[in-house]
């Protein structure tokens, strides 16, 4: 029933995140049943994306051009750089439309367990950007995990200079969170970072 290309297709699909063999088989069949309307346009889109999307040399974002549309947007505030671990984090912040500065994508966080050291991260361009006189604030928007915050401390150490404000995102009670359901650690952190009311 199955030939080489179909097996290959299923194998490739099943290597995608969130997909196992069964889902990959269903997707392969779905695509084959809609060759003209879905499979061929999808193949074309994939090829276009592979050819045209590249990593911005300045910030590490993914875009069709280099520097990316965020780095080359004259309306953005060049005095702020928000440091994130992954492009998906950048997208999450962009979705809020509340930040108008520039970004820098590290490409991960330091993790001795996974063998990720500073050399694997996009750190050198960040050092150069942080040293520019127009850069006034670096926002470390890394995850509130041990690895994420260890990376934040390490990055802060590397880029610190006089006149540069280094900030990090607040940790504490999430919007919609009820204290009764929060873990002790989150409550302790929220208490430590409390603000004056009003």
């Amino acid at each position: 029933m199955q030939g080489g290309p179909l097996d290959q297709l299923i194998k490739r699909l099943s290597s995608l995140p969130g997909l196992g063999n069964r889902s990959a088989r269903r997707i392969a069949l779905h695509l084959l049943n809609r060759k003209d309307t879905l499979m061929l346009p999808l193949a074309e889109d994939l090829q276009q994306a592979a050819e045209k999307i590249r990593e911005c040399e300045q910030c590490g974002n993914l875009d069709m051009r280099d520097p990316c549309s965020l780095c080359s947007d004259a309306r953005r505030d060049i005095s702020q750089i928000c440091v994130v671990a992954h492009v998906s984090d950048l997208w999450a912040i962009e979705r809020t439309s509340s930040y108008k500065g520039l970004y820098h994508v590290l490409g991960g966080v330091l993790s001795a367990l996974d063998g990720i050291g500073p050399e694997q991260l996009n750190l050198r361009p960040l050092e150069s950007r942080a040293a520019l006189p127009e850069t006034q604030e670096i926002i470390l928007a890394l995850s509130a995990t041990v690895d994420g915050q260890s990376t934040a401390h390490y990055v802060a150490d590397r880029i610190a200079r006089e006149g540069l404000r280094i900030t990090h995102l607040a940790h504490g009670v999430p919007v919609g969170g009820e204290l009764d359901y929060l873990d002790d650690g989150t409550i302790v952190t929220a208490l430590k970072s409390r603000k004056v009311a009003g």
């Binding site: 915050q149 260890s150 952190t189």
Partner: peptide, 25 residues
């Protein structure tokens, strides 16, 4: 089931965080 997280109160303190990682490792 989490009883108490040790890391959360130390996230803002690099030396203590490094001590925690070292002890666990």
């Amino acid at each position: 089931e989490l009883s108490r997280g040790a890391a959360a109160p130390l996230l803002g303190e690099p030396l203590k965080l490094a001590a925690l990682q070292s002890a666990c490792a």
